[in-house]
Design a protein around this nucleic acid. Structure first.
Length: 260
DNA sequence: ATGTCTAGAACTTCTAGA
């Protein structure tokens, strides 16, 4: 089962680019971030016509996550537990039922956190603490599960073309990377790096300053697998070429193949 | 070197967020 994460940066602006990629890449499941739409306004038809179930957790203008799936989804829940006051739509979960195994899927859009220091960075770190709690629960279940999405975290210097330019940024500050590492060290497998140690592997290129043309990217979209999911992984790739097309998102899809 | 894009409100131009 081919499962992707893709920050689409606005569903209405990305219908063409997204459906083109779906038709070529034929993913079974897509965890989408930054749909920037309320649930009622999400254009379901292009995806339902292609055989996908559509589950959304949207909000007006900003954020918003969704799951597209060709396989049945069970027990869909919305919102990251741990703060009833949090209004931001950044988390959706569902269990996808394969032919041999089921897998709990968590789609996430981790806060950007800039500027630092300040309330937005505090929110990012608090959100990561809540993420760690949910991560511990997933591991305790000892079942195939993944937490995938736009983490807004550059894990290591080799995950940025110009690491020095990110030194003071919320995506690369030592505190951010330590919080990410704490979650990883609970026992998750970061799917892409488990299979590919090559340099210059990125998932985001800023729209500004010709970042794509200059190869100035960062790798911030990640799929974290529980041991039971990692044992089922047969492939993981980044669909880089998508970034060079018309009306692209600033992110590209990252996907895993799991023998579910 | 900071050169862009999205959505939405107010309105054909601006703002916030990234």
């Amino acid at each position: 089962m081919k499962i992707a994460t893709f920050n689409i940066n606005g569903i209405k602006a990305r219908i063409g680019a997204l459906t083109d990629w779906l038709d070529e890449a034929q993913p079974d499941v897509v965890l989408c971030q930054e749909i920037k739409s309320i649930d009622e306004a999400f254009p379901r038809e292009p995806f339902e016509d292609r055989g996908y179930i559509v589950e959304t957790h949207g909000q007006k203008s900003f954020n918003g996550v969704a799951i597209l799936s060709k396989f049945p989804l069970e027990d869909v829940t919305r919102g990251l537990p741990g703060d009833d006051e949090d209004e931001q739509a950044r988390w959706i979960e569902a269990t996808v039922v394969g032919d041999k195994h089921a897998c709990r899927l968590c789609g996430l859009y981790l806060p950007n956190g800039n500027p630092t220091p300040g309330p937005k960075y505090d929110y990012k770190l608090a959100w990561m603490e809540r993420l760690e709690k949910r991560a511990r629960q997933l591991l305790a279940d000892e079942m195939p599960a993944m937490m995938a999405g736009d983490y807004n975290v550059i894990p290591q210097a080799e995950d940025a073309a110009k690491p020095n330019s990110w030194r003071e940024d919320a995506l690369f500050l030592p505190q951010t990377r330590a919080a990410f590492r704490r979650i990883m060290n609970l026992g998750f497998t970061e799917a892409f790096r488990a299979r590919n140690q090559a340099p210059e592997q990125y998932s985001f290129w800023d729209y500004q300053a010709g970042a794509w043309q200059r190869g100035n990217g960062i790798r911030i979209d990640h799929l974290l697998l529980t041991p039971q999911a990692a044992d089922l992984m047969t492939d993981c790739q980044i669909d880089k070429a998508i970034r060079g097309r018309d009306k692209p998102s600033d992110h590209v899809p990252v996907w895993v193949d799991l023998a579910l």
